[in-house]
Simulated assay, not measured.
Amino acid sequence: MEIEKTLFDAHRARFSAIDRLLPEAAPAPVAGERVDAATAAGVQVTGVVQRQLHGPDDVPLLWSAADARQLFPFIGDTGTEGMDVLLRAWRTWLDAESPGEDSSCVVNWPSRDAEAIRAFLDHGLVPMSALAVRTGGAHDDAAENDVTVRRARAEDFEEVLAMAVSTHDYIGQVATRRRSNAAELLAPALEQALDKEDPLLWLAERDGMTAAFAHAAWITSSPGSAEAELLPLGRWGYVNNVVTVPGLRGSGLGRTLMAVVHKEFSADGASGTYLYYNPTNPLSSVFWHRQGYRPLWTSWEVHPASALR
């Protein structure tokens, strides 16, 4: 979908000024429905809305509503007012629909844009997820001397899956919805990871018992790829999930585990490492900042979609 050149140039310039780590702003999605608005001075702003429907067996249900509507805003240099009038227009646009309870409105936006944050808060959106990149400021030293870290094996599957489900249930209290079929949704990715000769899945053991695990992957941000819309170009280490058994959270196991993971990524030539975490999670929001990560993009959401103000 074409966006007016003047507006898109201002949009791209704004992203560049907000955060030096942001890649060049992507053009508007080809598919979707357009929403238009104007500021009091008559400056035009616009957005494209895409709708995604997920069935009961779709993996995105682990982090998404079943009926998600995402807005891609183009507000140029209009700041809070531009985002405000565009969200108002989106709210009016929603009046023609009847979203159910398991629905959401989503805007993924640069984390450092304070002017836009004011508009998001005013319209009932909350920071549900953040893509964070590691920029340093942390030492990769083990916090626990009595912990052994090793690569996971196929026979660890059941234990790792049970830990992943327990973490999903915890996150269901503070961020995304809890899904009753979480085990079935989580299992395929874990099985695929463990099926590899040298899986990017590490276990931390204490006294012979599994106490934590980290699941990671390699992601390439190349020109024209979906990843390049979010990350600088390069080969990135992606931290998919880090889990500590409930009774041992806060004891340094995660730090010890990630010291190994970060060193292995660095040794293999990673351009950097990134991950997603929930800002509303009182554990991960503290842990990852101490590990040297900081938000690059934040997903602002409201559930159900009809709650958008």
Rank of each mutant, 00 (worst) to 15 (best):
Leu203Asn: 07
Met209Gly: 09
Val261Cys: 06
Val261Phe: 01
Arg255Met: 11
Thr220Phe: 04
Leu200Met: 10
Ile219Glu: 13
Ala259Asn: 11
Leu230Trp: 09
Val242Cys: 10
Glu191Phe: 05
Gly252Glu: 14
Thr210Asn: 14
Asn240Arg: 14
Met209Thr: 11
Glu205Phe: 10
Asp207His: 09
Arg255Tyr: 00
Ala193Ser: 07
Pro188Ala: 15
Leu233Ser: 13
Leu230Tyr: 03
His262Leu: 09
Ser251Tyr: 01
Thr256Gly: 07
Met258Pro: 01
Glu197Phe: 07
Gln192Ser: 09
Tyr238Phe: 13
Ala228Val: 04
Trp218Pro: 03
Asp207Trp: 11
His215Leu: 08
Glu205Asp: 04
Glu229Cys: 01
Trp218Asp: 05
Glu227Gln: 13
Glu227Val: 12
Gly252Arg: 12
Pro188Tyr: 05
Glu264Met: 03
Pro188Phe: 10
Leu190His: 04
Asn241Leu: 15
Glu191Lys: 09
Val242Phe: 03
Arg206Phe: 01
Pro199Phe: 12
Arg235Phe: 05
His262Ala: 10
Leu253Gly: 06
Ala189Ile: 15
Ala211Cys: 06
Leu257Phe: 13
Glu191Gln: 11
Ser225Met: 12
His262Ile: 05
Leu190Tyr: 04
Pro199Leu: 08
Leu200Pro: 00
Arg255Asp: 00
Leu201Cys: 11
Gly254Val: 07
